[in-house]
């Protein structure tokens, strides 16, 4: 654990914690973006350039904007303050504890923490590209098809909406 990792981890955790705790929804998204950026920085610090930069591009550049737009489209003019501790809170914490337990069990049972880490392989962007184009070309194409279907679906929904207005 280097100093850089500790700083980045603190930033990431603080960002995501603030995203959960803040009142204003837009502030939450901005705090969450800090968390995203922190994760991206951790990737970069681990020499995973492609994943880190894609994290910035997709999460900071696109998902955050999408979330912000969604909030603005659905924002009620006078936000009512919900009570901090509601009945959902108990349920939420149970779900969170369960998820954490499963993850922790998976990590512990994998034995990753006991065995010494092998020297990290340096994967260049070119290698990722080669892998995507040769070994994983079918999953890639299926993914592309799925996204195209989603895109067409979105366009169809938008078109229907337009005709209703007319």
């Amino acid at each position: 654990m280097t100093i850089a990792f500790i700083i980045l981890a603190v930033i990431t955790v603080a960002g995501t914690a603030a995203a959960m705790g803040m009142r204003n929804a837009v502030h939450c998204v901005l705090a969450l973006t800090v968390g995203f950026a922190g994760v991206a920085a951790i990737y970069l610090q681990l020499d995973a350039q492609f994943v880190g930069l894609t994290q910035i591009m997709v999460y900071v550049g696109a998902v955050a904007i999408l979330a912000v737009f969604a909030i603005m489209m659905t924002h009620s003019p006078s936000p009512t303050k919900p009570p901090t501790y509601s009945s959902y809170w108990l349920m939420g914490s149970i779900v969170a504890a369960a998820v954490f337990a499963v993850l922790a069990w998976a990590v512990v049972s994998s034995g990753a923490h006991t065995q010494s880490l092998p020297s990290e392989p340096t994967v260049s962007v070119q290698q990722i590209g080669d892998a995507l184009m040769h070994r994983f070309v079918l999953p890639l194409e299926i993914m592309g098809l799925l996204l195209t279907a989603a895109l067409i679906g979105a366009v169809v929904i938008a078109m229907d909406h337009n005709e209703e207005i007319k």
């Binding site: 894609t54 910035i56 591009m57 550049g61 904007i65 962007v125």
Partner: peptide, 11 residues
């Protein structure tokens, strides 16, 4: 890739 990733932060 870095250049375009950083450019998207301007938004």
């Amino acid at each position: 890739l870095y250049f375009f990733a950083v450019g998207s932060m301007v938004e």
